[in-house]
Write a protein that binds this DNA or RNA. Structure first.
Length: 189
DNA sequence: GTACAGATTGAG
DNA sequence: TCAATCTGTACT
């Protein structure tokens, strides 16, 4: 099986494009001499300073969200509800705040629910604050691989993003969530 | 300093 | 339906 780490150029595109393109790719996490891997089946795009649902709405910069402005291919991770980590990978160019939220993985040989949902995804891959700003194009402990899986457009479902009702009708309804139709690991209540 | 809500989850 | 649990942010 071909296993190619995704290069910087993959992430140097609009968040919406990258969010779609990440479906069917694999997240790899090295823990000691073991690896944990999972196929990405659900993502969301946060597309820039005009996106009311984004932590960087209006160009806001804080200690927590500054990584969202990093060049495409770096980790923006933060804690929600005081207990769950949320993994994002930045997209586009340095200085423009856009990213993709990784919401669910399908893990071979494991229950479909093991990494179903952004909090559980981070728990399964053991990702936390120490990965803040990690460069996934270079990191030895965390990266994304293309294993040659082809995803057809019609296999991709879209919907409004989850949990961002505070962002107003225009942005909360926009279809910036992407998922592989039929995957048992896709979240949703 | 204090109050409050959040890109969620699992129990009841 | 609700509480856990804690940080960033707004406001006193």
């Amino acid at each position: 099986m071909s296993r190619r780490r995704l290069p910087r150029s993959f992430y140097a595109r609009p968040a919406e494009t990258v969010a779609r393109a990440l479906l069917g790719k694999y997240l790899l996490r090295r823990v000691g001499n073991r690896e944990r891997a999972g196929k990405i089946v659900e993502t969301e795009a946060y597309i820039g300073p005009e996106d009311r649902a984004s932590h960087a709405f209006g160009g806001k910069v804080t200690p927590r969200n500054r990584a969202e402005y990093f060049v495409g291919g770096r980790v923006y991770i933060y804690l929600v509800y005081g207990m769950y980590w949320q993994l994002n990978i930045t997209t586009g160019v340095e200085g423009f705040p856009a990213c993709v939220l990784l919401r669910a993985l399908e893990v071979e040989g494991k229950s479909a629910s093991v990494a179903r949902g952004p909090g559980k995804l981070c728990r399964y891959l053991r990702l936390d604050r120490s990965f803040y700003g990690e460069d996934v194009t270079r990191s030895k402990r965390f990266w994304v691989e293309d294993r040659g899986m082809r995803v057809r457009q019609r296999e991709i479902g879209t919907s409004a993003r989850i949990g961002i009702d505070y962002s107003g009708p225009r942005w909360s309804r926009r279809k910036l969530r992407f998922f592989l139709r039929g995957s048992p690991a896709v979240s949703g209540r």
